[in-house]
Design a protein around this nucleic acid. Structure first.
Lengths: 193, 193
DNA sequence: GTTATGTTTGTTAGTATTCACTAACGGATA
DNA sequence: TATCCGTTAGTGAATACTAACAAACATAAC
């Protein structure tokens, strides 16, 4: 698991919820403490500052993403691996829609220099993993080679993010799973050799 | 042009700049008035409230997008039209990087119910225009028909947004024009019949 | 042409509210 | 006895916004 106490994990979860509901401006110590049912100063028994809470949120996201990526069987065909990866993310979002607010956290946190760096590192890491996956697929003849892996990864991640973004904006008011699968079918057609 | 006074336009422009520099949390009446060189209460001579300023920002974005879209020659091949559209946006962002903060404004404004609605309408409108463009291309044999126009538009907009998002996050530290053109070449290969 | 009047656009000084965070204290538990 | 983990009460700073007033200037009356 992670190194956080039960109360710390509770604060992290409620904070993600709050960002989803009210945006980053809704993430206040008062809102967090109200959500949990303790007073404001009690929060400071568990985190030194609000920034520390946000860093913990980022760290939690990082962990759950890594866990998910490690579960993908490397022996499957590339397109299957991409599908599994995106579907895994999708299931996680459906299970916990609050997380969709965080997928865009690069933008939300971009103007806080302390928080921007870990976000950027995580983003780059994830993309590099996908690029490596696609390049391997190109080497093994799974994926067309006339388009660079970097461009393909841009399309895959971009399409998915835009779809999830829309789902969030539309207040989760359509079947994300269905739309993601349609998108993945289109991606499959596009990637075929 | 628009119906705003000179001072109102100045407030709108400085506000866009502020959002780009410091995020939506940096958009305060004090920051706006400092940027312009007048006092805080003077702002209220030109806008009734901060919300009115944000609505004016949205309206300005809408106008400039429409202006751009109307300039595309409808007689060109579909792929050329898509390229022109994306390149037009790109040039606008390069000329005024502050605008990149606004392309994600759906997310930034999503938690303010007064502001979310006009943003959503604008978003849907733009996407419908692109879908219509692609469907016309499919009918005329310009674009492959085995993928629905909606899916193609998702890929095009998603890829572009993700690229611009990265440009913003990386502090505009790569050649956006070059990367966009590489992306458009990939899109072209993908869309070919 | 001068004076009176109204409008526009700014000022200073202030409001109430919210923010992150702290000091001092107390009960429960090891 | 010491350590958690909570409380009440408060801090100073920042927030959007307001009240009251003043200078500049255009319009219109005399």
């Amino acid at each position: 698991m992670n190194n956080y106490t039960e109360r710390q994990n509770q604060i992290i979860q409620e904070s993600i919820q709050l960002i989803a509901e009210k945006g980053i401006q809704g993430l206040t110590i008062k809102n967090i403490s109200n959500a949990i049912g303790i007073t404001e100063p009690a929060i400071y028994r568990h985190f030194d500052s609000k920034n520390e809470i946000i860093l913990a949120i980022i760290s939690t996201m990082k962990e759950s993403t890594n866990k998910e990526l490690s579960q993908i069987d490397d022996n499957n065909p590339t397109i299957e691996k991409i599908k599994k990866m995106i579907q895994g993310h999708t299931n996680r979002f459906i299970k916990n829609p609050s997380l969709t607010a965080i997928i865009f956290s690069e933008e939300i946190f971009n103007n806080n220099s302390i928080l921007a760096k870990p976000i950027r590192i995580m983003m780059k890491l994830n993309q590099n993993k996908l690029i490596a996956m696609i390049e391997k697929g190109q080497a093994s003849g799974d994926v067309r080679v006339d388009i660079k892996a970097e461009q393909i990864s841009l399309m895959v991640i971009g399409s998915f993010r835009f779809l999830v973004s829309k789902w969030h904006i539309m207040n989760f008011d359509f079947d994300l799973k269905k739309d993601v699968n349609e998108m993945l079918d289109a991606i499959e057609k596009v990637l075929k050799v």
